[in-house]
Amino acid sequence: MTPNEGAMVAELAGRHWLRGDQIQTMAAAAHLDVDRYKVAGLDENGHPRPESMGERAADAVGWMIVEDGPAGYVAVRGGHPRCAAVGLYQAARFDHAWVVITSHRVAVLRLRDLQNTEEGAVEEILEQARQERSLGGALRGLGKIVKTSATEFVKSARRPPLTERPQDAVLDCPFDVPRQVLHSIVRWKQPMVPEFNGGPRFVQVQFTDDSWARLKTDQAGLTALTGAQQ
């Protein structure tokens, strides 16, 4: 993320999203590199669990137990799949995502590159695989995703940065909730992992429904969201 990208997000937000509101805080955001969900009704990858009585009983207690370990850090905790933390974390799954706080709203805004055709193609492939419900269909879908991603990677490497192509930039808002849903934002550090100058920083965004999500940002984002300098 660059200051130029942040300025582009703010400019597009003023034209298409703010509707008279004012940005108070904004920060680049991304998923943890290795993450797990601890959410009732979802598995560790954030996918819906089978609706069996046993699963529901396990969820009733299991979602409250938060464990960070070799399998990955818990990135999202919540009592149900529709909690605010799940919405926030899933909205930050794409590149060029920013957490934006105004006097009335908390949102994730992201820049979408109109020349990047991968996202729509991958969603279509995944939907086809879900409909087939077979191992063969899943494997074919995985092969298509790998091929599509590789093709898009080659194309994107040849393009100038999106900040140099403002005509190709579109602002999406995959997460938008009232400000009062936000409880607090605190700094979070990965256990046993040192921090380096210029390296990533992390925050834990806590909501009034007792859910929280951890996001990766940079030093500027950490300062903007929490006021922490180190």
Rank of each mutant, 00 (worst) to 15 (best):
P194E: 03
V203I: 06
A84P: 03
S134A: 10
M26I: 06
V99P: 00
H16S: 13
G143E: 09
F196S: 10
R140Q: 11
F175Q: 02
Q206I: 14
S156Q: 15
R93Y: 02
V100T: 14
E67L: 10
R49F: 06
H31C: 04
E5S: 15
P50H: 14
G198I: 11
K216N: 07
F207C: 03
G120P: 01
S134C: 10
W188G: 08
A58K: 14
H183V: 02
V186Q: 12
G54P: 03
V39H: 09
R93S: 15
D113L: 05
V108D: 01
Y37C: 10
E124F: 02
G6D: 11
E123K: 14
R110P: 02
C83H: 04
A97Y: 08
G87P: 05
A7Y: 10
R105I: 00
D210I: 00
A85Q: 05
I23P: 02
N45T: 12
K189T: 09
R110I: 01
E124L: 10
T151M: 10
G120R: 04
L142Y: 14
R140V: 07
K144L: 14
G62Y: 09
E123D: 12
K38G: 00
L142G: 05
V193I: 12
L142A: 15
E118W: 11
T25A: 05
C173V: 15
P161L: 09
Q190H: 03
G199N: 11
Q90A: 09
G46I: 08
L32A: 01
R49P: 07
Y89A: 01
R214V: 14
I185M: 02
A85T: 08
A30K: 01
R187V: 09
M8N: 06
F202H: 15
A169K: 08
L171N: 02
K216S: 15
T148H: 08
D21E: 15
E55S: 12
E195N: 06
Q204E: 15
E44K: 14
L111W: 01
H16N: 12
R187A: 11
G41D: 07
L88Q: 14
C173H: 03
W63G: 04
F196D: 00
L215K: 05
K38V: 04
A60K: 09
D21G: 05
P70A: 14
R15T: 04
